[in-house]
Amino acid sequence: MSETSNTVEFELVSPEKLLISEAVEMVVVPGAEGDFGVLPGHSLLISTVRPGVINIHEGGAIKNSIFVAGGFAEVSPERCTVLAEEAIPVADITINGAEKRLESARAAIADLAEDAEDLSRVHAEKELKAAEAMMVAAKSD
């Protein structure tokens, strides 16, 4: 676990599998209350993650970007663990794909009956937010 002291162990885990586990110089996570960067020696932190893009930095430049559709992050001085419900490398997102998802998310919200269950409404809204964030990610790429 203890690599050189100027890297932090970054883990990205989805329910299906462990996606990334590597030592990085810095990682920027889209927290619920604003993005935060994690460098070695970060204070203990637990935060919710909003739909957005995680950037892995190396040598002052972004090495890798991954889109996540929300989740949780746990940070300790030597480790940063992100539990994501869904994670896709930004390079794999196409504007077309994001558009389709956005459209279907909007349609799903429009289709909801007035008296729809809270649960399905929460789902639909969550999906819409994720799709919007995906769109932003696709455009920025």
Partner: peptide, 28 residues
């Protein structure tokens, strides 16, 4: 983690508050 701290349990910073995180985290 808490080796270099005085308390017996590690002190986390929570963003947002613990209760809010728990409200999301527990069902998940």
């Amino acid at each position: 983690i808490s080796n270099n701290e005085s308390g017996p349990s590690p002190v986390f910073i929570f963003e947002p508050e613990e209760q809010e995180i728990l409200a999301d985290l527990l069902p998940l």
